[in-house]
Design a protein around this nucleic acid. Structure first.
Lengths: 144, 144
DNA sequence: TTTGACCTTAGATGTTACTCTAAGGTTTAT
DNA sequence: ATAAACCTTAGAGTAACATCTAAGGTCAAA
């Protein structure tokens, strides 16, 4: 069963959906396995068939990930998107605020590392001298 | 065979080492499995026995992790520490510089996410209104 | 002597998010 | 007609870093 002639441009198979959303077909199947993205139908030969809404959902997942949301947070956001009338803004805002705080903490932590590393780097000669007195190594050996 | 009376304070078993280095005994065994931290000896009953050098090594691993180094990078640093005369400062500095660049990239990425999320958050009313027109959800649905 | 804290091992499990493989069936174009 | 490109499944593998379990052995103190 072919589908391109029946619904030109409106339905597609997995590769095309993957291409449009900027992910691999493998990943699309994985998202289906974890319940994020189910094809709207199947062909007679059991091929997955996606429509425009599925493309929007796939792109939604992509953007959500780019914003730093995990797949399970993305699932929560998708639940809101898929049944908007049963959800309120406060829910989406809550998820977003929690993530903002989480990311701020991650940034803080990385900055601390960055400061430590920059100090370590600054003190090390970095030359062909023996590591016997390397300041990086000795700093890691004990509190100073 | 007991050991505390023989070498008071200088040798210890796994729990004590773990306590001093601020990690679990499980983790210490895991570090041994991946080749990072081998006990200097064993008792007759096959208990692991650690000495002061092992404590330094354990703390080294802990600090290295706190600086953001992976276990495999930590292994490289430990190799330098354990045979300093055969290594030069340049090696330690190289590892450090690479990590600094890596962390800087991570921070950049998180900041981008933070900006996006902050914008999303600012536009959302966050109230008990239906999510029908939620700006967070609709932003994720399509490029605007 | 017996309780409780500690130790041993190999190996299973968990997390997150994929990524790939094997072995085969389908579709399209030439 | 046949080759290339696509699709299917279950399930294994990857990375990084542990964390836990089962089944048992050891040790110190009351």
């Amino acid at each position: 069963m072919h589908l391109l002639n029946d619904n030109l441009g409106t339905v597609m198979r997995i590769s095309e959906l993957a291409r449009r959303a900027g992910m691999s077909a493998h990943t699309v199947r994985y998202y289906e396995k974890v319940g994020l993205l189910t094809p709207s139908q199947r062909t007679e030969s059991n091929y997955r068939v996606y429509n425009k809404d599925d493309v929007i959902t796939a792109e939604f997942i992509k953007r959500s990930k780019e914003c730093g949301f995990s797949l399970s947070e993305t699932a929560s956001l998708l639940a809101i998107k898929n049944d908007k009338s049963q959800h309120v803004c406060a829910e989406a805002k809550q998820i977003t605020q929690t993530k903002i705080i989480e990311i701020a903490a991650q940034i803080e932590n990385l900055k601390k590392m960055q400061n430590t590393l920059t100090e370590l780097e600054a003190f090390c000669c970095g030359g062909q001298e023996s590591a016997e007195f390397c300041s990086i190594i000795s700093s890691l050996e004990q509190e100073t």
